[in-house]
Nucleic acid binder design. Structure first.
Lengths: 156, 156
DNA sequence: TATTGTTATACTCTATAACTATA
DNA sequence: TATAGTTATAGAGTATAACAATA
């Protein structure tokens, strides 16, 4: 039998350990809820930033997300082949690709947002409204101290 | 210029997003503080579980951590070559390796624990004692709802 | 000459499954 | 025959740097 060993619950009193564990678990679960849409959290991140900053070039977005150019190619290829994002030639600078959501992309982004909201509810369902606000506040405090804002390191 | 795009701060109101982002950031930072010791968080996890469950076999520990046998080999090879963990033949079953910390391994584990504690302090230094307790309580609540306990998924 | 996007190469990490030695 | 540990192989994902088109 394998239960001579009880893994884990020693560092349960550590914020860092819990944060890292919960962060990974919730990210995995979120990815699973996104699966029916055929995308993963990184695609979601791309759709989100293209929506926020329509018409920007690949490398501009890549810089904002700390993704190297060569990786952006594959990522954008991916969402483009699904008909979610469109590469348009910029007439002012024909080297650059201006990125835009297609109608299909916008629709799917909205669906993904809805799923994200739903997952957020699920994640927090053990918490009262007040506890949830507290948690958010505390996490923001931590985030402020924990390195210079920036985007989600999971993209990079 | 690349700052036409302000990445990230839209989902800042999401517990899931913050959790995942902070978890990854803190894990990376913790790995960096461990670097002077020549180990990373996974080695630390191995040392920790060997310390907790001395004399267990590779596969018993692997099961507890959800690490497949073939990966355990490389991991244990690693800590053994550094003289931190010892594989002893079990006379009762000579197929199995009983794992033990060496004196050097124990010393390094203690050092790593000290570093972990120090990093934990650093991580929480923006929080009052009371806030820190609150956060810990809230994270535990979340953890209870978020899948069946288990060990840190980063090991598996 | 510098820059956007692309491609090619090489490297790391991992899981799968074959293998050995013991049982 | 079944199990502990090991090794071999193949696949995914990635960064690096060379490359083409345009500026």
């Amino acid at each position: 039998m394998a239960e001579g060993v009880d893994a884990g619950e020693v560092l349960g009193g550590s914020v860092g350990f819990l944060l890292s564990k919960l962060g990974m678990t919730s990210a995995t679960q979120f990815a699973e809820t996104l699966e029916p849409l055929g995308i993963d959290p990184r695609h979601f991140g791309i759709l989100r930033i293209v929506e926020m900053a329509s018409g920007q070039s690949q490398q501009q977005l890549g810089e904002a997300l700390h993704i190297p150019p060569s990786r952006m190619v594959a990522l954008i290829d991916d969402v483009e082949q699904r008909g979610l994002v469109e590469r348009r030639r910029n007439p002012k600078d024909r080297r650059a690709h201006a990125l835009h959501l297609t109608p299909k992309g916008r629709k799917l982004y909205d669906q993904a947002l809805a799923i994200a909201t739903e997952y957020e509810e699920h994640l927090c369902e053990g918490l009262s409204e007040r506890e949830r606000d507290q948690l958010l506040t505390l996490l923001h405090k931590l985030a402020a101290a924990c390195g210079p804002a920036g985007s989600h390191p999971g993209m990079a």
